[in-house]
Amino acid sequence: MTPLTLTAGTTTKARRTAWVPTLVLILGALYCLIPIAWVVVAATKDRSELFSTFTFAPGGGFFQNLSDLTAYRDGIFWRWMANSAFYAGLGALLSAAVSAAGGYALGRYSFRGREAVFKMILAGVLVPSIVLAVPQYLLLSKLGMADSYGAMLLPSILSPYGVYLVRIYAAASVPAELMEAARMDGASEWRIFSRIAVPMMMPGLITVFLFQFVGIWNNFLLPYVMLADDEKFPITLGLYTLLAQGASQPALYTLVITGCLLAIVPLIGLFLVIQRFWSLDLMSGSVKA
């Protein structure tokens, strides 16, 4: 009798406790998703509907907004999107490459000054990149590079956080024995790095790539300071110029909202695509190890 009631008691208890975290998670999900739902719904409203109809009642102006946005200044919106893709794509790729080399070297080789270098990079993790935007601008304009594509790429290439992450990842995932074995077989250091270490570090590198990609895609201050020519603007800065048109001009809210919706689509797409490689590599990595 007693054990029976006890088990019954514990099961209900277990069920009840499971509700709390679920509820918290649902609330958290709502908290994150409602703004996105708002953007999705608001993008369908035309100018007169935007502020007058119920918040989550979809309007009938999405395609009008889309064609207005495309027509705005001869389609400069798509140019901004392409710029963003270029800055974020190439910047993240280069950054992942630099992080791979730097992190691997710091994690797998012991050399004089290694800790000093690593500590400087750690300190770099603590400095927010926003603080660096103005000094970077002044330095790059001394080199005559301000307001160029290079001015946006160069500061994005070195990511202290990426180097840090790859160092930790390399130390954990590339066994020293394996490197020794490769050396015995006569492989050069470059070959060990490119053929053995990089594939083993791939999940870590993809993480660095994603972080950098999202970081550059969403970056506002660096392009704001660095770029003067609106043909080179990324999407963040471009949409901002639509909002701030001076007191006497109504802000182009409908265009900005539609633009924001379109601007997050590539990010969502990227996550969906890369997620597959992510888990795949994690698994294959663990099997090999």
């Binding site: 304009s141 001394k142 307001d147 704001y224 003067a228 909002l243 701030a244 001076g246």
Partner: peptide, 24 residues
């Protein structure tokens, strides 16, 4: 014409650009 953000923002951007000798 290069389109910029309005008001106060353009001022801070201009002062920074001027420091680097890049004002339009």
């Amino acid at each position: 014409v290069s389109k910029q953000a309005s008001g106060g923002e353009i001022v801070s951007k201009l002062i920074t650009a001027k420091k680097a000798g890049n004002a339009p």
